[in-house]
Amino acid sequence: MMRIRLELPPFIFDIHSSVGFVEQNIHNMYPDDLFINPSRPADYFVGVEKANGLRKFIRPQASFSFDAIEPFKTLPLNHAYASLEWGINYVVANQSLQYVILHSGIVAKGDNAVLLPGPPGSGKSTMTAYLSGRQGWRLLSDEMALILPETLKVQPFVRPICLKNNSVDLVKRWYPEAKFSTVARNTHKGDVVHLCPADSSWQQRDELASVKAIVFPRYDERIDLEITELNQNQGFMQLAQNAVNLNLHGQQGFNTLVSLIENCAVFEVVYNNVEAVKTFLEQDVL
């Protein structure tokens, strides 16, 4: 039985699991200095355990829990580690209202951040993985941008990057030295592997950044690079669709999105060449 306390700025998670490969993955994905002793209070208590029922002998299942509450259906045991990562996202999205949370990748060059919001399949995580590993860049998050309400400031929430299907091989080619988790097969997102972000991202995990640009990525294998600047209305509507807890924040949430849109360049980028996107961001945007 594993019980650990993990400092994932800006939160502290207390995590338990008796599933062996979950523990291995956690130690593989998270640097040692994030494991802290329990003298500091944890914000959230989560875990993933083998589910009960005689089915555990035939088709073992895993169940995620948030302090004794199980918010999801059970999943095949093979998904246990991935479901823990998703469960942590779920808890933050529902509980951490000190931030306006956008469902978006977010990377920064120095302290200048670029939001990469997009639906599943848009290549958001792949793009985030690519950029966050390049010289001078860092990861803030591949899933959720934690914006301080009514500012442009964004709090990093550095975690393993969730890669799906074909993007796994692509990223392994770009970063052969990187650490990858075990594979969760046939999840609702396909085959899923988590990628440990580069050291520089972990080192700067406490350093806030300012959002400078919003880029809606869309992967299209036929198009090298096509950039469209969006007007504020288009940008706002698309951004609002990716807001996770906007309704909880009411007026303050709305104001936060307006201020982002009014102060950032907003683009839609159709691409198949990640390096070209990086060049565009470095030369024309930041």
């Binding site: 589910a51 009960n52 029922g53 005689l54 089915r55 555990k56 299942q61 169940s63 259906k73 059970t74 609702h188």
Partner: peptide, 16 residues
């Protein structure tokens, strides 16, 4: 049945 076959046995499969 739930005890034998797991909690989600009666939960209808959802297309996602």
């Amino acid at each position: 049945v739930r005890l034998l076959l797991g909690k989600s046995f009666f939960t209808k499969e959802q297309n996602s």
